[in-house]
Design a protein around this nucleic acid. Structure first.
Length: 339
DNA sequence: TAGGCGTGGGA
DNA sequence: TTCCCAAGCCT
């Protein structure tokens, strides 16, 4: 067996993580965890994963669910296309694959929201297939050990990393789960982006970045993308009984599929709601990865035209807000305007 | 193919 | 405060 895999496997057994709730060979649980963990930290996922498993314990129950029920459990976790694709993929498994997860990576990639790395993780953890993952952790580990200074967002360089990662796989397929977990654990707990703990790294004697004193500069940073500012209004319509008017957002764009108050790009649009008065709140900012939302909440309590006439939506009482998947900043703001 | 897509945490 | 980015994928 190659030395890299052997060292990593031994290190994982002694020093890796072994108590994460998704460490199982059940493909459903592995799949769900991999989707939740995309661009999301373990500590955050630990808050959502048990609730999701409790409500949808298997792929059948998820396939039969309403999209709103799935998004409700996902609300606050971000990247909501993951939830919509998760729901679609559950239906693919039940109705196209006869309720059984495919075992080959290439087949798993047919599932909505499952790319090569996620497919490889499922194939490795659940079916011991000799497939490598290549997530942010693995890219960082490889760039350091082999002192590679390419741009990890560059497709050609990424292709080289895939090839390198494949060449490092253990020969014994039974080692695939512990090896794959070791890759993730090493990147997450030792070979971290900042303040890597090289003195406790099982690979330090092989690490070219360490030998060249270049650990801090690898992997190379990609050029920063300028952040766009987006300004809009939230029109909060509150009925005399305290209910708020919520609309399901379109299936594309920010907060797709979630429930939200009407968003207006300018104050002229407010005329269509037939308002004669409203209260304006201070601008609240909400930062996304590549956008800065500048939201001005408007509260209206007297309106002579019913919003039902302007589009579909639902009146929701404050005690029932939690039953709807709301964007995080809205869920945080709404309590301020409770009667 | 490069930009779109959330939220939270660390420095 | 401000910036970067974390178990990526889709179009």
């Amino acid at each position: 067996m190659n030395q890299f895999a052997e060292k990593l496997i031994n290190w994982q057994r002694q020093h890796g993580r072994h108590n994460l709730p998704w460490q199982t060979s059940d493909p459903y649980r592995v799949w769900l965890s991999e989707i939740m963990l995309q661009q999301t930290q373990v500590a955050t996922v630990l808050e959502y994963y048990p609730k999701f498993i409790n409500r949808f314990p298997d792929v059948q129950s998820l396939a039969e669910a309403e999209q709103d029920a799935v998004l409700q459990l996902w609300a606050g976790l971000g990247y909501y296309s993951r939830a919509r694709n998760l729901h679609k993929a559950a239906q693919q498994i039940v109705y196209e694959f006869g309720g059984q997860f495919p075992q080959q990576r290439i087949e798993l990639e047919r599932l909505c929201g499952v790319g090569r790395s996620t497919a490889a993780a499922i194939a490795a953890f659940a079916f011991r297939q000799p497939e490598t993952i290549l997530d942010g952790n693995v890219k960082r580990v490889l760039c350091r050990i082999f002192a590679l200074d390419g741009d990890t967002s560059d497709k050609k360089f990424e292709a080289q990393l895939w090839q390198l990662a494949e060449s490092l796989l253990p020969k014994n397929q039974n080692d695939m789960p512990v090896y794959t977990q070791g890759l993730m654990d090493l990147g997450a707990t030792v070979c971290k982006r900042s303040k890597p703990d090289c003195t406790h790294c099982p690979m330090v004697s092989d690490c070219l970045a360490w030998a060249q004193n270049r650990v801090a500069e690898l992997p190379r940073k990609k050029s920063a993308v300028p952040i766009k500012h987006i300004a809009f209004y939230w029109l909060i319509l509150r009925r005399d009984d305290g209910a708020i008017w919520l609309q399901k957002r379109p299936q594309k764009g920010i907060w797709a599929g979630l429930y939200c108050v009407p968003c207006l790009e300018n104050l002229q649009e407010i005329e269509s709601f037939g308002l004669d008065d409203w209260q304006e709140y201070a601008v609240l900012t909400h930062r996304l990865t590549h956008r800065l939302l500048e939201i001005t909440p408007l509260l209206a309590t007297h309106f002579f035209r019913q919003p039902e006439d302007l589009g579909s939506g639902v009146w929701v009482q404050p005690q029932n807000w939690h039953e709807y998947g709301l964007p995080k900043p809205l869920a945080q703001f709404l309590p301020q305007i409770v009667l």
